[in-house]
């Protein structure tokens, strides 16, 4: 599973980071660091929840 990050849309709510800090990393301003994310095996469920908890809909999950 991969998470596609639309960094333009990230506004620093940091809900993804609150749920799964080991998957989603923030820069020093509190925005998500750029680049799509390869979700480690076994972390799909929490990553999916984090994607759905983004108020801005800046994250999207794709299987693959």
């Amino acid at each position: 599973m991969k998470v596609i990050v639309d960094r333009e849309k990230c506004q620093g709510h940091a809900r993804c980071w609150a749920l799964a800090p080991e998957i989603f990393h923030l820069d020093e301003e509190g925005y998500i660091t750029p680049g799509d994310i390869d979700v480690p095996e076994g972390k799909e469920q929490i990553a999916g929840r984090a994607v759905r908890s983004c108020p801005e809909r800046a994250l999207q999950s794709v299987n693959g």
Binding site: G12, L26, E29, G30
Partner: peptide, 12 residues
């Protein structure tokens, strides 16, 4: 302005 202020109030 956000770049100046954000680090002061970041979750970290």
């Amino acid at each position: 302005y956000r770049s100046l202020l954000n680090p002061l109030l970041s979750p970290q």
